[in-house]
Design a protein around this nucleic acid. Structure first.
Lengths: 212, 212
DNA sequence: TAAAGTTTAGAACAAGTGTTCTTTTTAAAG
DNA sequence: CTTTAAAAAGAACACTTGTTCTAAACTTTA
């Protein structure tokens, strides 16, 4: 999923508003006049792009067959357990089987479902201290994590550095046999280390900072 | 509204399920085959009854123009309009009366109600660029704002610096006649300015960073 | 039983609608 | 500048689909 052009975003927004207003999706010609296009084929062109990029689903040969994949009806609240805190110099807590037991007394953070997007094994950690400022993460922030042991190139992960005995949140890149750990803050420099010096403790899904 | 016949109830249920499955309402012929009627005119007949009784709204001459009037109601999710973006060197967008019109085509961010805590005038801005790293805010982050003109000491606010002609997110302190603007990042130093050089454009309620 | 109202059938029309084709314009890349 | 790709425009085709008309079957009421 890459970024949308202005017109494509406009179409998405128009469709959402149209459905909210009328209870049914617009036709190609509704979008045409609503967004100021001069031809139905232009709309069709953009809809094809949006479908290919995964923003909508089109039902061929079906009138008004446009389905928003970020449907408000699918949106609900998901309870995420806050299983502990994350601080410099100590490994992050690992979810145990009863972490997912909502009734087990753990603090619960309720987030919009489109943050977790249906992922399994999502938990939250409270950040203690200012050791993560290079990841643009502040004291008191809540970090939404997913319990995985391997991440794709470029994803932000909680990485345990064995030699340094500390945990850090960085984007992970595998580059010709060594690991590059890139801070989210572009002004900071990456650090390099050996693959067997790191241990992926989870993938960072989101950061929530509540100020007031 | 009086009771529905079995077939009419069946139509209502079918329509609801169809929309849930496909994201758009069924046609008269979809209902015909889905509910086992032998003619479209029978469906039309029952739909007229349902519209007269207030269970649905029909949009004449519109394909799939069936609107369920008993739509699933709101949970504890709060829709927040994303009214624009925030970048260095330009004032942040100010909500207009129609910003709150959910159907007006604006992009909507749904957040858990305990983030806004029932506040009025909450909107969201998408951060463009890396000018807010001193506030520990990254490119692409979503900033939840509340439309206020005055903040309490120590609250994080969007501040417009008149002389510098730029907007910044900082904690605001009034100290013996001058203003101290304190970055969230403790490693950065505060800046001081005169009270009449600043304009509070809103209070920062939360920051949401979505990474995956 | 007769009459009136309700529901069901079948077919067909006309407008709505997704799709495709070709051409033109605009933007990006080399 | 040349080449290539992306985006827009306009028209036309064929299927979809709401609607209507007429008639039959069923239910209710007197």
């Amino acid at each position: 999923m890459k970024g949308l052009s202005a017109k494509q975003q406009r179409i998405i927004d128009f469709v959402r508003g149209f459905i909210l207003d009328n209870g049914y999706p617009p036709t190609v010609r509704d979008i045409q006049s609503g967004c100021g296009f001069s031809s139905t084929s232009v709309v069709d062109y953009h809809l094809k792009v949006l479908a290919r990029e995964g923003y909508i689903r089109r039902h061929p040969e079906v009138s008004r067959g446009i389905e928003l994949l970020t449907r408000p009806s699918a949106s609900s609240l998901v309870p995420v357990p806050i299983i502990g805190s994350i601080a410099a110099g100590e490994p992050i807590p690992v979810p145990t089987p009863d972490s997912w037991d909502i009734a087990a007394g753990a603090e619960i953070l309720e987030v919009s479902a489109d943050l977790t997007r249906g992922r399994e094994g999502v938990y939250a950690l409270r950040v203690k201290g200012w050791s993560m400022v290079d990841a643009l993460i502040n004291d008191g922030d809540l970090v939404l994590m997913q319990y995985v042991n391997v991440v794709e190139n470029g994803e932000m992960a909680a990485v345990w550095l064995k030699a340094e005995k500390e945990v850090t949140l960085k984007k992970v890149y595998l580059e010709s046999g060594r690991i590059r750990l890139q801070p989210a803050n572009r002004q900071m420099r990456p650090i390099y280390t050996e693959p067997d010096n790191i241990e992926i403790q989870g993938r960072v899904i989101a950061v929530i900072r509540r100020l007031v």
